[in-house]
Design a protein around this nucleic acid. Structure first.
Lengths: 122, 122
DNA sequence: CTCCTTAGTTACATTCATGTGCCTACGTCA
DNA sequence: TGACGTAGGCACATGAATGTAACTAAGGAG
C-alpha cells in the first residue's frame, strides 16, 4: 500500500490506517515470517523467493519507519543485520494470525464455489 | 491488491491470500462500511468521498467475484442496487474489527513517537 | 591477487492501479 | 420538452509500485 498520496477514502478511517502499514504486496508476508523468529536479510529472501533485493529493502525500511520492526546491524564482515518485531509490532500478531486463518478458510471456500456454481447468494 | 500478476511472495501463503481480497486502497474501507449496513452505490460514494465512480465499481465487482459481498439489483427507475456482505463475507468481520482497533492504537502510538524521537528501539 | 559472501544502493524500465471525463437509459418532476 | 438522479460503462492519462541489472565495501578463503 502506501499509495495514499492519491488521497484517502474517508478522512481518518482506522482500517485504512492499518492497511497502510501491513497492506501491499510484501509486508503481510514479511511480518508473518518475523512473527516466528528474528531473521537476517538474505534469510528472508530465501523465505520469500519472489521478492527482489530492492523491494525487500524498501519494505523493511518502511516497516522500520513505522515502528513495527527493529533493525539491528552488527558491524562485522560480511555484514550481518537482524530484523525482529518491536513490542509494538507484536501487537499486530492477532491481525496477522486472523488473516492466516481466514486465508486458509478462503481457499477451502473457493473449492466449494466450484461446486455451487449457480445457487450462490450469501 | 490483486497485483499478484507479478508473482507471489512465497507459494501458498494464506496471509498473502487474505491481503489479495481485502488489501488495496479501498476494499478494507468498503468492507468496513458494509459491516454496519447494506448500502446502495451512491450511498457508498458519499461515505467515501475520495473514491471515484469507476474505482468503486471495480472494487465492488472484485469483492463480489470473491464471494465476499452480494449485489442485489432492483429493476426500478432510477436504478437501485444494494450491496451487502455474504455469509462468507461476515467471516471477515473479526479481521476488519481487529484492523480498526489496531489503527486506532497506531495513531496513538505515533503521537508517542514524536516524544520519544531518540530512545525508540522496541 | 582474485573470488566469495552479505546487505545493501542506484539508475533505469515497466507494469499495474488508479484517476478523469464523457456517455447512457429510464422514469419523474417541473 | 427538458433537466435531474441512479448505477453504471468506456477510453484515455497518469502515477505509484514493482522489477532488473549493475555496482559497492570489507575481510577471509584459495
Amino acid at each position: 500500500m502506501r499509495n495514499r498520496k492519491a488521497g484517502y477514502a474517508c478522512k481518518h478511517c482506522p482500517v485504512e490506517t492499518t492497511l497502510d502499514i501491513i497492506g501491499g504486496k510484501w509486508k503481510g508476508v514479511i511480518l508473518y515470517h518475523l512473527m516466528n523468529k528474528t531473521c537476517r536479510f538474505n534469510e528472508m529472501r530465501r523465505l520469500m523467493p519472489g521478492i527482489s533485493q530492492r523491494m525487500l529493502t524498501l519494505q523493511l525500511r518502511e516497516l522500520e519507519k513505522d515502528g513495527v520492526i527493529h533493525r539491528e546491524v552488527y558491524p562485522v564482515v560480511p555484514p550481518k543485520t537482524e530484523y525482529s518485531l518491536t513490542a509494538f509490532g507484536e501487537t499486530l500478531k492477532p491481525i496477522i494470525q486472523e488473516m492466516k486463518r481466514w486465508g486458509d478458510r478462503y481457499e477451502h471456500h473457493q473449492e466449494q464455489q466450484l461446486e455451487d456454481v449457480d445457487q450462490n447468494k450469501a
